[in-house]
């Protein structure tokens, strides 16, 4: 029986507890993910927005199968990824789900040319050789708007950050990725090229139906690229839904705080209320840290963890 799957990725009650046993001091537990349920439809982008330490990268790593969940499940095309036992299944998943990291330099091997970086995935996953391989390399290079003639023989240090990030995206394309987990892919790039990399990701999504899990601390870029956003704080998704609903009608105190802190060039800071902003931020953080299980649907598709006042 073929089950119709409308979601490419489904995260169900994902919880991850890290048991910390430091050399000095007492062992303790860190709840990095707390009962997270999210899903992404094929060809769409879900942005996970949160500050450092909120657990957003841990979520990306869990989806990339870099570790096992403490409880809950992640399923890809309707299959639980923890249940993939055979080598073929695992390889297929690792091919379909690719990661692009924040630092475009450390993600590339400085001792090899760009051609090498693009050839390896094509040889390993698509078993291409000879002229087919050469052609495929040039194709993926052109797909990310890099000139194959100029770029392929260069080394990573000869490229700008934006070009390097394009090579990383090309690598994901080369193996035929269906889901790309992009963990802060633009935060280390210069502002003037950030937009072009986001544009490229958006085009990859629109013309090739590539699905994105976009992890960021910048809600403006999330709004730019995503079809759904999820705001994370202290291991919980506190509010989620279509970007415009969440941004125009924020419900959770943390979402409101986050939105109020996004710089608006039209509003000049005058220094009044510095203390009150700081103490409000403190109060909201304490509130948002509580584990809450009451979920309310504000508008169709727009959900919030409702904290009782």
């Amino acid at each position: 029986m073929q089950q119709i799957v409308s979601e490419l990725l489904r995260i169900e009650g994902a919880t991850k507890i890290f048991h910390m046993k430091p050399m000095l001091g007492a062992a303790h537990e860190v709840v990095a993910l707390n009962n997270i349920s999210l899903s992404i439809r094929p060809g769409k982008a879900l942005a996970v927005v949160g500050e450092s330490g909120s657990g957003k990268s841990t979520l990306g790593r869990a989806v990339a199968r870099l570790f096992q969940l403490s409880s809950g499940s992640i399923s890809f095309k309707g299959r639980d990824i923890a249940g993939m036992r055979s080598r073929a299944d695992k390889l297929d998943y690792l091919r379909s789900v690719q990661m692009v990291f924040q630092d475009p330099f450390s993600a590339l091997n400085p001792a090899h040319t760009i051609r090498h970086h693009l050839e390896r995935p094509l040889m390993l996953h698509r078993k291409l050789r000879g002229t087919d391989l050469g052609k495929a390399v040039e194709e993926v290079c052109a797909d990310v708007e890099l000139d194959p003639k100029v770029t392929l023989e260069k080394y990573p240090h000869e490229l700008s950050g934006g070009q390097r990030q394009r090579v990383n995206l090309a690598r994901a394309l080369a193996v035929g990725a269906e889901l790309i987990i992009a963990d802060e892919p633009t935060s280390m790039l210069d502002v003037s090229i950030r937009r072009s990399v986001l544009d490229l990701m958006r085009r990859m999504k629109e013309t090739r139906s590539i699905t994105f899990l976009y992890i960021t601390h910048d809600i403006a870029t999330a709004q730019f690229i995503a079809d759904d956003i999820a705001i994370m704080y202290a291991g919980q998704v506190v509010e989620w839904g279509p970007p415009n609903l969440v941004i125009s009608n924020p419900q959770h105190p943390y979402t409101k705080l986050l939105l109020s802190a996004v710089p608006d060039p039209k509003v000049k800071l005058d220094g009044t209320g510095a203390r009150s902003f700081a103490s409000e931020a403190q109060a909201v953080r304490a509130l948002a840290r509580k584990v809450v299980n009451t979920i309310e649907e504000v508008q169709p598709g727009h959900f919030v963890r409702r904290i009782e006042a």
């Binding site: 500050e51 450092s52 601390h217 910048d218 809600i219 705080l257 986050l258 109020s260 802190a261 996004v262 710089p263 800071l269 220094g271 209320g273 510095a274 902003f277 700081a278 931020a281």
Partner: peptide, 10 residues
């Protein structure tokens, strides 16, 4: 992150 950024700028 933006919240801390705002606190410090204020």
């Amino acid at each position: 992150d933006v919240v801390v950024q705002r606190e410090i700028l204020q």
